[in-house]
Simulated scan of single mutants.
Amino acid sequence: MNNHSGQKLAGKIAVVTGGSSGIGLATAKRFVEEGAHVVITGRREKELKEAAAFIKTNVTTVVGDVSRLEDLDRLYAVVKEKHGHIDILFANAGAGTIAPLATATEAHFDQTFDVNVKGVFFTVQKALPLFKDGGSIILTSSVSNVLGLPGFSAYAASKAAVRNFARAWTMELKDRRIRVNSMSPGPIDTPALETTTGLTAEQARQAAAQFATQIPMGRRGEPEEIATAVAFLASDESSYITGIDLAVDGGMAQV
């Protein structure tokens, strides 16, 4: 094993959900660069294979949907068989589609909460038997956990729930010295804006431009800028940090 002094996560075993694109992929790659072995999961096999090719080394893929408990069981069976334990969990899989309150459907609401709330809850619960004491759990929340975002109220509420999970689980897991933090991205330049929100390409471009005007830094963030922050929360560099919400948002929700 390469225990280079510069590697913050040398020899660690990390699990990343929603690891096939965007923030999850950038973070999984960063984890490997920092010396970790990663297991990534996502719903689409083709994208997962492409992600593994991009990461190149020390990566295992497991196809699965975090809102399906049997898929989570399969994920952790693979982790257990291959590595035997977990040091780091990045519960990142999430979904956010636009739907105004007046017209939102039950299916929209259920999908949002099944992935973002139930999915995160059981992703963490089912990881615990494999977790090494002293490990780190990072949950992907969103700046929407404190903002009013018209058209995204179910999404924002689901992300506020994730923020609270970090608080409660910090207390529940403290005796095992497992740190739990949430990380709240602002608008990040990922494929999700065009592929999962229900916006057309033109609407997505307008939304991105609109976001930029609301951000003190005047631009969307890059997935790699999120990955750096998550790697910090995953590593011993953040050894006295637990229960926080680390906003990585160019100042969007801060001013």
Rank of each mutant, 00 (worst) to 15 (best):
A14Q: 14
R176F: 12
R205I: 07
E70I: 11
V120W: 02
A127Q: 07
E106K: 09
Q111R: 06
D110M: 08
F122Y: 15
S144A: 14
D110Y: 14
A91G: 04
P191F: 06
K118Y: 06
T123Q: 02
P223T: 01
L149E: 09
S238A: 15
S5K: 12
V248L: 14
Y76W: 15
R220T: 07
N3Y: 14
A227P: 09
A99Q: 05
M217R: 05
G119Q: 05
Q7S: 04
Q203I: 05
T140P: 03
G11V: 11
I137G: 05
K80V: 08
A77R: 12
Q214H: 04
A10W: 09
A212E: 15
A168I: 10
L101A: 14
E50S: 07
S235C: 12
M252T: 08
K12I: 12
R179L: 08
L128T: 03
I226F: 08
A36I: 06
Y76E: 09
K159S: 01
N181H: 05
V115M: 07
K118H: 11
S20G: 14
L101R: 02
M252K: 12
D236C: 01
A227L: 10
V78A: 13
P150E: 08
F113A: 12
I138M: 15
A28M: 12
I244C: 07
K174N: 10
A192P: 00
V66E: 01
T170W: 04
F232P: 05
E237K: 01
L246K: 07
R167G: 02
I55M: 00
L72K: 04
F54Q: 09
T41E: 10
N145E: 15
E50L: 10
E47D: 09
S142G: 10
R74H: 14
R44G: 13
S238M: 11
A166L: 14
G24R: 00
A253M: 07
F165A: 08
N2W: 08
E202S: 11
K29W: 00
A247W: 01
Q111S: 07
P150C: 08
D249A: 12
L128F: 11
G24I: 11
M217S: 04
G119Y: 10
Q210I: 04
G94D: 05
R43A: 02
D249T: 06
Y240S: 06
F121C: 02
Q206A: 12
F121L: 15
A253C: 05
A247E: 03
E222S: 10
V115K: 01
A77F: 01
K126Q: 07
D245F: 06
T61Q: 00
M183Q: 15
K46Q: 09
I241R: 03
R177G: 02
G148D: 12
G24D: 06
P191R: 02
G18W: 00
A26N: 00
D110N: 10
T105K: 01
V180D: 07
G11P: 08
